[in-house]
Structures are given as C-alpha cells and as structure tokens.
Amino acid sequence: MRFQHSPALWRDFPALVPGVLLAHGLTPAVSVDAPVARYGAAAAERLAAAPESQFPEVQAWRRAFATLGLKPTQYRCASESLLRRFRKEGSLPRIHPLIDLCNAVSVAYGIPVGVFDLSRIGGDLEVRYADGDEAYETFSGGLERPDAGEVVFADTERRAHARRWTNRQSGHSAVRDTTTDVLIITEALHDTAPQDVRKLVSSLADELRTVWSVEPTTAVLTQEAPAFTC
C-alpha cells in the first residue's frame, strides 16, 4: 500500500508537513491511562494560557479551511474540535486505547491525528481533491458523496476514508476491537510544523513501543519525498 498527498494539494499548500506511522499487532487489551493523563495535563497547561483558537497550529488550519471555502467555525479541524471539547469538559470520551492515546497526543500538540484500520483500506490511499463520486460511509452506516473539490482521503476503490481534510473520518476504516494493523496520519501547516510533527511522530512511536511492545515504521513526508509505502 502507498500513502501520499496529491501534487495539486502540495501545490496549493506547500507548507504542509505530514507524519505517518504504521503499526502491526495491536490489541485493545492494554491500559493507556498514564500517557493519556500526561498528554492531557500538557494540553490543559496550554489552554490555561490561551484558548485553542489562538494556537498557531489551529490558526493555520483555519486559514487552510477558509482557502477551501469552508467556514472555519463551522468545519473545525480534528485537533481544534478535540481541544474545544477538552477545554469545556476537562476530559475526552474513552473509545479504544489507541484512539484515546492518539486523541490525547493530538490535544497536547494541537495537531490532528487520524487513525485508520489498514485492513479496511482498498489499495493505495491518497489525500486529494474529490471528484464527487467517491463513497463515504458515516459512523451510523449511511452513505454520502463528498462534494467535488473537497479534500478527502480516498483509496484505490474510490472509497473516502475522511471528508473535509481532517474534519470527518469514515466509519468504514475506524479502529475497532478487532483492529490489529493501523496507519496513523498527522498533518500540520503552521510555521514550526517540521519540528513539531517530527516530535509528535517520535513521541507517539515511543508510546506504541511502551504500551503495545510493537515497533512502528515512521516517516515525515515532504513535497520532494511525498510517498509512504507499506
């Protein structure tokens, strides 16, 4: 399988910094309480100094969404949505150990982190502008067609695994208790994204080694080297 962003997306968003982790052999029978608490404390410290709307990571995504014709307060990037909920409620819902961990890392860094069940992706996966005929499955099992020009995560079978860039992940490839192999994708656009994404990827890889005793494959992609093969 090959993961990449389309040349058109790199052209329009040259500041993009994607990070990728591939991990095999995961199970839900682990505890992530300690790292979730640690990353949550880091997020709470940042939010005590300023709301998420002032984070440079979030502001960069708001500008990108505005460029795409989306209202930034109507369609929030995944990390902003999580930070907003965390600020209001003081915690995030617990879903699955891997999702809980990735959500905690996301709020700590202010950067979106998406997790995909590798077995549910048909062929290659590309982040690109939608043609409008891709199939997107909601978490309730409904079927949607992304708007033409919308940024989607689309596989070779023309299934959209996320809509509106980082905003809405598909129920089809969401992590579940039977998931063992995952592709984790993080993306940032702010000025210090090259350093921050590398730190996030390294931190998350360390957590996967510690919690699951697995050795993830990682990469930070660039416009010159935009593809990750697994």
Score class of each variant (00 low, 15 high):
L221C: 02
R198M: 09
Y109N: 06
D147I: 05
G132P: 13
P72I: 02
P14N: 08
I184T: 06
S203M: 04
V151H: 00
P226V: 06
Y75R: 09
L183W: 00
A130D: 00
A15K: 12
P226T: 05
L82N: 05
D133Y: 03
D117P: 02
A66E: 15
D155T: 05
A78I: 00
E207K: 07
E126S: 04
T192P: 00
S140R: 15
R164Y: 08
L118Y: 08
D191Q: 08
Q195A: 06
D155R: 01
A104F: 08
T192W: 05
G25R: 07
T156N: 05
E137H: 12
G132N: 13
G149Y: 13
A34I: 11
Q74V: 13
G69D: 07
V152E: 02
L26W: 01
A48C: 02
F228Y: 13
E144I: 11
E215R: 12
E207G: 08
G110K: 09
T67K: 10
E157D: 15
A174H: 07
E45N: 07
I121G: 01
V197I: 14
V58R: 00
G122C: 14
T156H: 07
I99K: 05
R159W: 11
P97W: 05
Q74L: 14
R145W: 12
E134F: 07
E224M: 12
M1K: 04
N167H: 11
R198G: 11
V17K: 02
H190T: 03
S79I: 04
T222L: 05
A219P: 13
F86E: 03
T156R: 09
E187R: 12
G25A: 07
P7H: 10
H96M: 03
L21K: 02
L189F: 15
A205C: 10
H96K: 02
G149H: 10
G171N: 08
H172D: 09
R84K: 14
D133V: 08
R84D: 14
V107S: 03
Y75L: 12
A34Y: 10
Q169Y: 03
V201R: 07
R87Q: 15
V182A: 09
A64I: 11
I121T: 01
A44C: 02
T67N: 06
T229W: 06
Y109W: 11
L208M: 10
A23Y: 07
A108L: 01
S173N: 00
D117V: 01
D206I: 01
S119C: 10
S31N: 10
V20T: 03
V197K: 04
F3Y: 14
F139R: 13
Y109K: 08
L70R: 06
A205T: 12
L82W: 09
A148V: 11
H24W: 13
D133P: 00
V30N: 05
T229M: 11
P7K: 10
W165H: 12
R120H: 04
Y75I: 13
H5V: 04
Y109R: 08
E224A: 15
D124A: 03
T180L: 10
L125Y: 01
Y129L: 07
P14D: 06
I99S: 07
D147Q: 09
F55I: 06
S173D: 06
T138V: 06
G69V: 04
G132Y: 15
E215K: 11
G142H: 14
R38C: 11
R11I: 04
